[in-house]
Design a protein around this nucleic acid. Structure first.
Lengths: 341, 341
DNA sequence: ATCTTCAGTCGAACCGATTCGATATCGGGG
DNA sequence: CCCCGATATCGAATCGGTTCGACTGAAGAT
């Protein structure tokens, strides 16, 4: 059933039906009603594909998420949920593409085939092939995250560098002298994952400023790895009294390892870092952390994208958030660990 | 840049370019190469929308997820991830629609506008408007979950009824005489959410068979509610020694409440239920539970859907999984609770 | 030399909408 | 009575592909 069928049954031309539907030209009241009656009777809905072809836009945005296999972190889930939600509010559909670096088929279908009007890109690397490709096609896009040349794109991001630095200063203020950074996985950091690198440099800067002893450590995105990582850190660095981390998924395991080592948080050991607000609040005990408002970021990314789609010539905009650290009681004054603990 | 541009630059007709690309008719070697050279030079990719219009299929499937606002459970995330993954392997794109009951705009766009070749429906209710609508349009669909008339649709599902019954029997075998079911949220159950109802009836059946005392309780999908729920249960039912639950998100809170009540699991209190395998394993302590293979279910749903898309006349197929209970040590012999605990 | 066959290519129709210019009809003004 | 303008509607072109039937020319058969 198509617009021609409606036209025939209403005894008018296809263009009249189209105008009746869109209201872009006047249609007489009787005709309008006759057409509407037929439409209601048959339950007609215009074919979105045909409309997209003619109009040159699909009313769909692409959302590029990390590739299959890895589970999304709570923060990433927050991004996805809020992007989908914000898109829905703007009557845009969302096409999902799980794709990492090199030309993924689904990414290429989406971008090359012009299936979407714009793209929200997650988990951006300092050098990112997908950004290159998007720029080359001229398709509007917005990053949740940014490359090493942030002026040349639109993005929203969390200032991991400053935040981790703040965490370190907070710990130093409490008297901690030896602090570890627990980063995301080694592969991710090696691949140039932005937050991983920026956390490293913020951490390095702050420990230098405060003259602290420090350890950097990478950890896969799951609880077991988190536990193993902390266990190793405790064993190898007896003077360690605090951890700052950006690895959400590892946090529960980190707590567990501390508990098993007989270290109470925050009495014997302090933990802080950066996490989605929802995640930090729901950990047990709730984590003192810089609360990333994932929901807001995703919505903002969509706003920027909609703007770029409307006018691709608009200058690049960006939004760098530096949320405050919420004190929830997982950090406390430094207290030397007893040997063996 | 379109196929006409390629044709002009290669000095052939548009149809020849099309045939060169699709291989559906022979094209001479020289022409083939000339066309390919132009395509490579310009980086041409056929427009997916135009192709979809002509072919009458979009090579896209819709995935209907629970509406915005509620966070997805780990199991639901597993479904989403595996559906997206399986679709990608079949070179299908995934269009996301967060929509619950009554005519959501995004659902209507997707289904009414024929934006997809088929739909995977999550979180199905016993009576489900979306199923009605899909059936009416004739669009192929597969449910992850089923209505109260399962013969009339294709679906994959977990046999919550049997599984919860097994959990109860397992607890009864260990000597527990008073058992609570912690269900999903009251609103969800009231709305006719399938697993909620089936868990209720499986529970009721099993406690009747074993002549047990029982309590049924609903609980919102988050840790805090889980804690509150268990606290209330412990207070109101001193004889309670075990819980069976299907509420993943509440589990961490349930553990916490037990701990705070001074009850050790499994020494003083037993917990079991149904959860995504990954989730049960990663809880601390790991939960004795019927392990739902969420990844497999999603993939199977896509397989069924692909089949229905290829031949919509094919009889309905379904897959009801009843995974075994993995003993991970959160259930043990019943032991009377001391008063006040 | 004529007829067949076949490989290779072209032109046109089509998918289902939107949109522009043209046309028909009608009432009112001169 | 004729002309004008407004209103309502129509027909055709268009978006960018795919596909079918027809056409061309050269090779092979008779």
């Amino acid at each position: 059933m198509n617009i021609g069928e409606i036209a025939r049954r209403s005894g008018v031309s296809r263009s009249t039906v189209s105008y009746a539907l869109s209201g872009k030209r006047r249609v007489s009241k009787v005709t309008q009603q006759r057409i509407q009656a037929v439409i209601d009777e048959l339950g007609y809905r215009p074919n979105a594909t045909a409309r997209a072809l003619k109009e040159g836009r699909t009313r769909t945005i692409g959302l590029v998420i990390p590739p299959a296999g890895r589970r999304l972190t709570d923060m990433q889930l927050g991004f996805v949920a809020s992007v989908v939600d914000a898109a829905g509010r703007a009557d845009l559909d969302v096409l999902l593409s799980p794709s990492g670096g090199e030309h993924d088929r689904s990414f290429e279908r989406m971008v090359g085939g012009k299936r979407v009007d714009g793209v929200v890109l997650m988990e951006i690397r300092l050098e990112d092939d997908r950004v290159t490709r998007l720029r080359q096609t001229g398709l509007p896009f917005v990053g949740i995250g940014r490359t090493h040349l942030p002026e040349e794109m639109s993005w929203v991001d969390v200032d991991y560098e400053t935040l981790i630095s703040k965490c370190v200063h907070h710990l130093a203020d409490l008297g901690h002298r030896r602090i570890a950074l627990v980063n995301r996985s080694a592969e991710l950091v090696a691949a140039g994952y932005g937050p991983g690198h920026r956390a490293q440099s913020g951490f390095a800067r702050a420990v230098a400023e405060r003259g602290l002893d420090s350890v950097q450590s990478c950890c896969a995105d799951d609880a077991q790895s988190g536990a193993a990582c902390v266990e190793a850190l405790l064993g190898q660095h007896p003077g360690l009294t605090a951890i700052a981390t950006i690895n959400e998924a590892a946090m529960p395991g980190m707590y567990r390892a501390l508990e098993q080592a007989g270290l109470a948080v925050p009495r014997d050991f302090s933990v802080t870092g950066v996490a989605a607000q929802h995640w930090a609040e729901n950990l047990h005990p709730p984590l003192t952390a810089a609360d990333v408002p994932a929901d807001e970021l995703g919505a903002r990314a969509v706003e920027l994208l909609i703007q770029r789609i409307a006018d691709p010539a608009t200058p690049h905009l960006s939004l760098l958030l530096t949320p405050a650290i919420s004190l929830r009681g997982t950090t406390g004054p430094a207290r030397p660990r007893e040997p063996g603990r």
